[in-house]
Design a protein around this nucleic acid. Sequence first.
RNA 1: GCGGUGGUAGCUCAGCCGGUAGAGCAGGGGACUGUGGAUCCCCGGGUCGCGGGUUCGAGUCCCGUCCACCGCCCCA
Length: 414
Amino acid sequence: MSEKIKTVRGFRDLIGEEARKYRFVVEKIRNILEKNNFEEIILPTVEYTKLFTRSIGDATDIVEKEMFTFQDKGGRDIALRPEGTAGVVRAYIENKLYADGTYKKLYYEGSMFRHERPQKGRYREFHQVGAEVLGTINPLADAEIIKIADDILKTLQIEATIEINSLGCKKCRPKYREALINYLRQHREELCEDCQRRLEKNPLRILDCKVETCKVIAQKAPKITDYLCDECKTHYRQVKEYLKALNVEFVENPYLVRGLDYYSKTVFECVSKELGKTVIAGGRYDYLVEELGGPPTPALGFAAGVERLMLLVKELPPKKPLVFIIPFGGEKEKIEALKIAEKLRQEGIRTELSYREGKLKKQFEYAAKIGADFAVVVGENELQSGKFPLKNLHTREQKILTLEEIIQTLKNLS
RNA sequence: GCGGUGGUAGCUCAGCCGGUAGAGCAGGGGACUGUGGAUCCCCGGGUCGCGGGUUCGAGUCCCGUCCACCGCCCCA
């Protein structure tokens, strides 16, 4: 025997019920987005590495150590996409979607790749459904994007807290950053090792530190919301007003910062209580289009983590009733059973023809085992009389019916 | 990337102080030749994650490695 080949670490198969759950989650989200008049954009899985280093930020963990990168045969630096927004923005610029003066609402779906330590709800290949609105600064868009996230959670019957914050803009964020660093420097010695390192590189992250002593320090730190410029302040206030008008429940979290560099103004996260993890997150990125070479274009969006949502979906809608057709006898009966199975399928009835040979007892055991709801025996007597026993495998009741009557009975159920 | 726990039959797991692998469930067949989940009987099934070391002898001890899970980091 040769060596067993297994999946690559952090990659996995989704089989049967798991695949069904995946489709269920993705379809629900797609429906909501279509209803909001978002158009689908199907993006490449691979982009030039530079796209991600420039958009996500080259000091972030994602770029520093989590990207799957390689060189193609022409020596070009290529990366498996670690997230979707950068690709959407690249496509927006490359295809000049800004040219007609309308704003664009796009959504995508697919695999993302991050070379991290795998855990439950965290894989090296994972899936996101994301939506982006490009070309508007209107806070109505912020509110609607968050409302869509809320709608996804409600539709999937998932309990999560929507946390929001504003990170300010080019005008006000530097002032806040300075104030924050000044404050934190006074407490440098009390900060954990990681945070001491973050102090110069990414001080905002310290606000999000889980270490108890850092939390205490963070709580007394200046809040970004006190430093917002008039424009950002108004924007943030409007977003909150609109959310209230939509009856979207949210909590303000002044310590909410995001791991990607490109965010500005509104950011939000939907945190599952059960998982303690973020399942949907997003925000504004008003400078990204310009930084990637497009015209100045405010934009925003979110990404939903399919695997994490799957962990929280407890029940799937039932499948259509399944009929198990049992040929009983010889070749003649098999051929008739084959034709009957095909006829039922043409009527839209989920049908399985038994490939098993042998006793009826075994056939019925098999039917129950594969989860069939009904069984029909096709034997010599049936073919002579033109009537077949339709057995309900749950109640064990059996009715003798013509094929037409069987079809009607089953169609009425599904 | 760091720390921890674990990997034995399809599944859940037992296996002492090192002595050549076991249970339950599942599967196949029969008791019962045209109607299932009960009962009883029989049967098959394993490179003990992988590689090396110690030993007369390793599932068991040691080292390495892979994988899963938990925590950290980070993130959807």
